[in-house]
Design a protein around this nucleic acid. Structure first.
Length: 567
RNA sequence: CGGGGUGUAGCGCAGUUGGCAGCGCAUCUGCUUUGGGAGCAGAGGGUCGCUGGUUCAAAUCCAGUCACCCCGACCA
């Protein structure tokens, strides 16, 4: 490809709205253009990257038995009503009506569509296992799109769905996808981590996320400093923590007047005890009922854990009027005399006694004991993990790093097959719901994540497998006919050899071409100037290195091939 | 949806006692340049987000509205 006949318009300055580096660089390198909030055009340079990523995904999926199809972006409301998600999904689901007044939505995901297909055609155990996937534009009306294509409303996703006869077989399908995903991210040249994840609103039991490690990532990843355990903050186990040895605990139950003490910190300061000896009583709304959760003052509640423990669809903090109805004024709730179920975090159980709310304004109670002054419905892990917590696998300590979620795999079980009646007849003649799994990769997000991970002050440094072009070629003296002819010859040679080369044949000064090549981040750069031409050489340089090597014209092709292969 | 902020040329911005709409980059023309975003000379490009109000006069003051960005609850 010649730049003169390509469509390239690099920018020296990015729009002020671009905050993160990948967004700025993608705009400056003329890879994307915003049309509306969270809605982008992939310009030719950017689209080449997307296509490269798609192809890697395709190959890895096919290797593990995936079969590609293409489902529509617009979906009718009926199937969403059937699965029960038409009302549950929230405003992220962009709904609209057609000219006849029928309800439709832009597909944010395709469980409903694929399940509708599966139930129509998969009738026998002989037809499984099967894994269907497509790569397609999704639309989610995100509350706050940001960071360019990192969190766009319209984005390109690969989603796959597996269908199996039983749990054992589904586990094999899940494992194959896990393998395929690792291969995808490795082939894309990304440093990533597979972590345990909560399955979220899509549902199911077993779930892993694939995180690209980057400082600018939006997600927090817990990882062990000693072993390979890693988990989403939502999911990471928080083992019981013993109270500090130097605390003396009061034995005697006693009411204390605590004026103007509204936060745990205030109360601890007023009572002159450590924050960890003050226990918060949090009133939660779990589905339709209220429950109390006891958690140490220095810990935070993880509502996802509570939700999973109680096996309810959602858990949220109760409204003030509900809190007042069961436990007196907000800020003074306590477990003693409370007549809703009380759930206690492991670390609270370790406290010999504690300070708790008194269920009256400005009143706290010290010396309260679990099992004596109040009873727990259950004890469990309900808090968010912290840096320094003990790893459940090996006893090491937790670190927190940031990451960008580029892939997520779920075992769904029969969630959709039951609600949408996708059943098959098994070998024993019994009708059973199909066991499903679903597997997503954010294709457009991978491009952004790769930039976050691979760049310098000049621009992008693409990993070779997903670079828009492998090689950039140009003359440093475009006015010198001999030099230019030599470059033309090199261009022809590389092109005929099947190397993905972009030839910057514009009538520009060397500095312009060099800057553009660095900004766009082609992995290999070949230049010829008057000096090197006299020596019968071209200068070959890797984007990530600072030094160029002089290579005889006849050896350029071989050198390039070597570089592309071993890098 | 709550809190904060911004809308002036393709991009980055300036524009306060209210008085001819500006600068840099980019674009076009010519000459000179040509190994890391060239120099000089010239040119084109605007409904100052939109609507209404105050005023002889509004980019500027007031009201409303829309769009966009940043911080919080979602997700590939």
């Amino acid at each position: 490809m010649r730049v003169s006949s390509f469509f390239l318009n690099t920018q020296r300055e990015a729009p002020a709205e671009a905050e993160v580096l990948s967004h700025i660089l993608m705009v400056r390198a003329f890879m994307i253009r915003k049309l509306a909030t969270g809605i982008f055009t992939y310009l030719p340079m950017g689209y080449r990257v997307i296509r490269k990523i798609e192809q890697i995904v395709r190959e890895c999926m096919n290797e593990e038995g995936g079969v590609e199809l293409l489902m529509p972006a617009v979906q009718p409301a009926e199937i969403w009503q059937e699965s029960g998600r038409w009302n549950k999904f929230g405003k992220e689901l962009l709904r609209f009506k057609d000219r006849h007044g029928r309800d439709y939505c832009m597909g944010p995901t395709h469980e409903e569509v694929i399940t509708e297909i599966a139930r129509s055609y998969i009738k026998s155990y002989k037809q499984m296992p099967v894994n269907l996937y497509h790569i397609q534009g999704k639309f989610r009306d995100e509350v706050r799109p940001r960071f360019g294509v990192m969190r766009a409303r319209e984005f390109i996703m690969k989603d796959a769905y597996s269908f199996d006869v039983d749990v054992q077989s589904a586990a094999v399908s899940y494992e194959r996808m896990r393998r395929a995903y690792c291969k995808v991210f490795e082939r894309c040249g990304l440093k990533y981590k597979m972590i345990d994840a909560d399955s979220g609103p899509i549902g199911g039991d077993l779930s892993n996320e694939f995180m690209v490690l980057a400082h600018t990532g939006e997600d927090e990843v817990i990882s062990c400093d000693a072993c390979d355990y890693a988990a989403n903050l939502e999911k990471a186990a928080a083992l019981p923590v013993e109270p500090s040895a130097d605390i003396t605990f009061t034995d005697k139950l006693q009411e204390v007047f605590t004026p103007n003490a509204h936060t745990v910190r205030d109360v601890a300061a007023f009572l002159n005890i450590p924050v960890q000896a003050v226990v918060k009583t949090i009133i939660l709304k779990a589905d339709e009922r209220l429950v109390a959760l006891l958690i140490r003052g220095d810990h935070e509640v993880n509502t996802t854990k509570v939700k999973n423990f109680l096996r309810v669809p959602f858990v949220e903090f109760a409204e003030p009027q509900h809190i007042e109805a069961v436990s007196g004024p907000v800020g003074f709730s306590g477990p003693i005399g409370l007549n809703i179920p009380i759930y206690v975090d492991y670390s609270v159980e370790k406290l010999p006694s504690m300070a708790v709310g008194g269920n009256k304004r400005d009143l706290h109670i010290i010396g309260a004991k679990l099992g004596v002054d109040f009873k727990a419905e259950a004890v469990g892990d309900f808090r968010a993990a912290l840096v320094g917590d003990v790893c459940p696998k090996c006893g090491g300590r937790y670190n927190i790093t940031r990451g960008i979620e580029v892939g997520h795999i779920f075992y769904l079980g029969s969630k959709y097959s039951e609600s949408m009646q996708a059943c098959f007849t098994d070998a024993d003649g019994v009708k059973k719901p199909i066991e499903m799994g679903c597997y997503g990769i954010g294709v457009s997000r991978i491009a952004a994540a790769a930039i976050e991970q691979n760049h310098d002050e000049r621009g992008i440094i693409w990993p070779i497998p997903i670079a828009p072009f492998e090689v950039a070629l140009f003359s440093l003296n475009s006015n010198n006919r001999e030099v230019t002819d030599a470059v033309e010859l090199l261009y022809k040679t590389l092109l005929e050899a099947g190397v993905e080369v972009i030839y910057d044949d514009r009538d520009e000064r060397a500095g312009v071409k060099l800057s553009d090549a660095d900004l766009i981040g082609y992995p290999v750069r070949i230049t010829v100037g008057e000096k090197s031409y006299k020596n019968g050489c071209a200068e070959v340089k890797l984007r990530k290195n600072s030094e160029a090597a002089a290579v005889k014209f006849a050896d350029v092709l071989m050198t390039v091939r070597e570089l592309l292969e071993c890098e």
